[in-house]
Design a binder for these strands. Structure first.
Lengths: 184, 184
DNA sequence: CCAAGAGGTATACACCTGTAGACTTAGCTC
DNA sequence: GAGCTAAGTCTACAGGTGTATACCTCTTGG
C-alpha cells in the first residue's frame, strides 16, 4: 500500500483520469473506474476535485498546457505540423494526445466548453504566437480544425483510405494545406 | 392516438432517432427517450430494430444515403463545398447534418465502425465519383477530414475565432484548401 | 504517549441504462 | 359478428451513474 501522501495521490488520480478520458471520452468513463486505476476510492476523487467535471477541467488544463507546438520557425511550421500529425495518428502510435481527449469528450456540452477554453488559451495561442502575421487570426483556428478532422477520420472513424494511403503523400498534401492556411 | 400502422410507426421511430442521435450522440441518448418522442414504448423500438445498435445502423444508413454532394461539375466543386460548409455550420443554422451525427457518436467504438462503413459507402463514394482523376484517392478522404474538423471546431467546440471570423474569409480559405486536395 | 487532524473508506440514495418475457388490444378476414 | 394475428405495452432485472453523509485510521506535533 502506498504511504499516505496527498500530493502523490492527487497526481495518481490525475494521470489515471487523463488516460481514461483520452481513451474513452468524458461520458464513457466512470469516476469509480478512474479511482480504481489510481488505487483509491471514488469518493476521494470528488474530495480532491469537487466533482467529475472539476476533475475533467484539471485534466484538460494539464494536457493542453504542455507545449505541443513543435518549432518556432514559421518557415518550416507547415511541414512540421504535417509530419507530426501523420506520425501521431499512425495506426501503431501511442494514443495519448490532447486532440483525442478533445474529440472523444466533445459530445458532452459541459466538457466541450471546458475544452474550448483550454484550446483557445493554450494550443491556439501557441500557434498564433509563432506566426509573424498577427492579422491572420483565422489561419490558426482553421489549421486546428484540419488537425482535428484528420484525427477524427484516421483514429476515431478509422477511415480505410487514410489507413491505406502512403504516409508521404498524406504528409505532402497536408503540408500544402497548412501552408495555405498559415501563409500571408 | 395514431392508428396502428407498422410502416408509419417505424418511420416515426427512425425520424425520432435521427433527431436524437444527431443532437446528442449515440451514448447520450436512451432508447426510452427516442421511443417517447415517437409516441411509442421502448420495447417496440427493439422489436423493430433488434437493439439500439441496430436502430443506429439504420439511422446512419438513411442519413448517409441521401445525396449530399452538391454539384457534378468538378470545376466548381471546391467552391461549392466551401460555401455549403460555412453556411451549414453557421451559429444559427438548423442542426441536422450527417456530420454532426457522426462526430457526436464517433466516441463509441461500435457506433464508429457503423459510421465508417456508411461514410465510405456513400459520402466518400459520391465525392470520388465526381472527381475526374481516379488516381487521387486520398483527396476525397482528406477533404472529408477537413469538413469534419471544421464541423467539430465550429459547432461542437464552439471556437470563438471561427464564430467571430468573417464568413467570406473562411469560405475563401476553405475553397483554397479543397482546391489543393481535390485537384489532380 | 496520546490527542487532533489529515488522508482515506463505506454505505447509501435516487436515478438511469438496455433489453428479455409475458401480456394485452386493435384491425382485418371470413 | 367471431377469431386470429399483428401491433403494441407492462413489468422486471441486473447493473451502472454521480455524489452526499458518516465513518474509520494513520501520522504527526506537543
Amino acid at each position: 500500500m502506498r504511504p499516505r501522501n496527498a500530493a502523490a495521490t492527487r497526481e495518481a488520480i490525475l494521470n489515471s483520469a487523463l488516460e481514461a478520458f483520452t481513451r474513452a471520452g468524458y461520458d464513457a468513463v466512470g469516476v469509480r473506474e478512474i479511482a480504481e486505476s489510481a488505487g483509491v476510492t471514488a469518493m476521494l476523487v470528488n474530495r480532491y476535485f469537487g466533482s467529475k467535471e472539476g476533475l475533467f477541467a484539471e485534466v484538460v488544463e494539464a494536457a493542453m498546457a504542455e507545449r505541443t507546438v513543435l518549432t518556432d520557425d514559421p518557415a518550416t511550421l507547415a511541414a512540421d505540423i504535417a509530419a507530426v500529425l501523420v506520425r501521431r495518428t499512425a495506426p501503431d502510435a501511442g494514443r495519448l494526445d490532447p486532440f483525442l481527449l478533445m474529440l472523444r469528450s466533445a459530445p458532452n456540452p459541459r466538457a466541450a466548453e471546458i475544452l474550448r477554453a483550454g484550446i483557445e488559451r493554450h494550443v491556439e495561442k501557441h500557434l498564433t504566437d509563432v506566426l509573424p502575421d498577427k492579422r491572420n487570426t483565422e489561419g490558426p483556428a482553421l489549421a486546428l480544425a484540419v488537425i482535428a478532422g484528420f484525427w477524427v477520420m484516421r483514429t476515431l472513424i478509422g477511415s480505410t483510405e487514410l489507413a491505406r494511403a502512403d504516409e508521404g503523400v498524406l504528409e505532402a498534401k497536408l503540408e500544402k494545406v497548412f501552408a495555405v492556411l498559415l501563409a500571408e
